[in-house]
Structures are given as structure tokens and as C-alpha cells.
Amino acid sequence: MRFVLGAAAAAAGYRLAAFDSIGSTNDEALVRARAGDPGRLWVVTAHQWKGRGRRGRTWQTPVGNLGASLLLVGPVQIAAAASLGFVAGLALSDALSRIAPRLSTATALDGAEAPGGTRFELKWPNDVLAGGAKLAGIMLESEALPGGVTAIVIGIGVNVAASPVDVPYPATSLADLGIEADAGAVFAALSDAWVVRHAQWDGGRGLAAVRADWLDRAAGLGGSVAVRVGERIVRGTFETLNEDGCLVVATEAGERISIAAGEVHFGTVASLGTTS
């Protein structure tokens, strides 16, 4: 598998470290940050065996799928950095739409109806869906470094050639969707799309525009939602994201509850009261 940066990414000064196989691209990015790497570095592979998702879960990257981590280093406020997950989601959605411009979705696999014409949807906080099934996941990690700077690693895993079968949620891949693209093509498009979306974010100053664009592609917006927050389940309507990126749920009791982290289920699954 050959990986190259997109033309816009190369022109913007991004660098690339590509591996045929690696344990974890996130781990490699953090090791390099600790060793003094200045950032703007993509670490990519088409096979990783120790990838991880949110909440300590394993993220499977069999041969042919894309595992990519972007290392950014600098003085940054963690609150602002947390919104980079939304930036990455938009960039990946942009990239996938370029690769598969004719793809459209209909009814989501968990029972929710996808808006007409939506190609790829963004599921809060950091997943990309196609037809209601998980196509990609994004995870952020950060670490304080000497000199008052912070390393931010944005890990992105895309099911390109295969989708997992032993997971408790619907999953899909580009191959499942009939899209003929390899991990190298997806990465090149992603690296260029990131440049545009990162400029829009502008150190957090463009967060309002990022939020508006994210909501335009949000899965389940305006529909039934159930969010597991620890041992508690919050049910209601997915109303919006607040300015901090929290999911806002309007309950039948008239409450508006802002949720910073949780497991989200939409549509029929949420209405039936099932979140397993």
C-alpha cells in the first residue's frame, strides 16, 4: 500500500510517516511527540493490530483498512482542542464524499431515517456513518509536553476493505457499499480535506461555523435519542449541540440536558428503550 499526502496537505507543510503494519498509529505519534517532533505529522497504515477506540475499546484495522493519526503540537487550550474531533469528522465526511460522490443512503440500520441525499452522516461525538452503520471512528488523545506545549493526536480509523462482524452495533465498509477505493486514496483525500477544515476552525475561533456544518450532517438530529451516561439513560429528542460541543437532549418532562460524553442510540432503538 502506497500512501502520499494530498497536494494541499504537502503545500501546507504537513509530513507523513507511513507503515505497512504497526501496532498503533496513535502510540507512534505520541512517541514521536515526546521525542520532540514539531507536529503536523500524519502517521498512517493499512494494518494496525493494537488500535483503540474510545473508552478503551479495540478498533480493528485489518489489512486494507485505514488507520491514520495526526499529530499536532503547540500551545493550545484543551477545551478548544476537544472540538478538533468535530473538525476531523467534517474533513473525513468531505473526503469520503469526494471519493464516492454518487453514494446516497436511505433507511438507517438502527431504524432511524437518514435525510434524503445525505451521503455520510456524523454521529456524536466522533463517528462517521453510512446508512446508519458505522464506517469510521475518531479518537482524540492529548499529552502535556515540556515547554508549555501540548501534543494532540487525532486518531482516525476507516473501514475501507472490511467491516468488523463481532461488534454490538451495525458496521459497514467502503467495499460493502460497493465503493472501489483503497486506503491510500482515502488518506490522500482526507489529508487535503483536513487542511480546509482546520483553517475553518482557526484555533477555535471558527468553532461556530464548524458546529453549524457539523449539525447539517448530524445523524439523528430532531429524532428520538437515548444516551447512556454511566448507569443513567437520558431519553428524549436530539435537539442540537451547544457551544461547547455537548449533545443537547430535550426530554418529555421539558428539560434540556447537555451531555458531554455518553453512548448514543437513535430512532427505533431509542424509542424501544433498548441501548444494548
Rank of each mutant, 00 (worst) to 15 (best):
R2W: 09
L5D: 01
G6A: 06
G6W: 04
A9W: 09
A9V: 10
A10K: 14
G13L: 08
G13A: 11
L16K: 09
F19V: 07
I22A: 10
D27R: 15
L30V: 10
L30F: 08
L30R: 04
R32L: 10
R32H: 02
A33G: 05
A35I: 14
R40T: 11
W42F: 15
A46Q: 13
A46R: 10
G53K: 06
R54Y: 10
R55L: 08
W59K: 02
W59H: 01
V63M: 04
L66G: 13
A68K: 12
A68S: 14
P75K: 14
V76A: 07
I78C: 02
A79Y: 02
A81S: 13
A82I: 09
G85S: 13
G89S: 07
G89L: 11
G89V: 08
G89H: 06
A95I: 02
L96R: 05
L96I: 12
R98I: 00
R102N: 12
T105H: 03
A108D: 05
G111L: 06
A112N: 06
P115Q: 08
G116T: 03
P125K: 09
N126C: 07
N126V: 07
D127Y: 11
D127P: 13
G132D: 04
G132M: 05
A133G: 04
K134T: 15
K134S: 15
E141T: 11
L145R: 04
L145Q: 08
T150P: 04
V153D: 02
G155S: 01
G157E: 00
S163T: 06
P168G: 03
P168M: 01
Y169N: 00
A171H: 01
T172L: 00
D176H: 10
L177R: 07
G178E: 01
I179R: 02
E180D: 14
G184S: 10
A185G: 13
A185S: 13
F187N: 10
F187P: 07
S191K: 06
A193S: 14
A199R: 15
W201P: 06
G204K: 13
G204L: 07
G206W: 05
A208D: 15
A208I: 03
A209M: 07
V210A: 04
A212G: 03
A212M: 03
L215Y: 05
A219D: 01
L221P: 08
L221H: 08
G222N: 10
S224C: 07
S224M: 02
R228Q: 13
V229F: 03
V234R: 10
G236K: 01
E239I: 07
E239L: 15
N242F: 01
E243I: 00
D244C: 03
D244M: 07
C246L: 08
V249P: 00
A250H: 06
E252P: 06
A253F: 11
G254H: 14
G254T: 13
R256H: 14
R256E: 11
I257H: 03
I259A: 12
I259F: 12
I259C: 09
A261L: 12
A261V: 09
E263G: 14
V264K: 00
V264N: 02
H265Y: 07
V269Y: 05
S271K: 11
L272G: 03
T274L: 01
T275G: 00
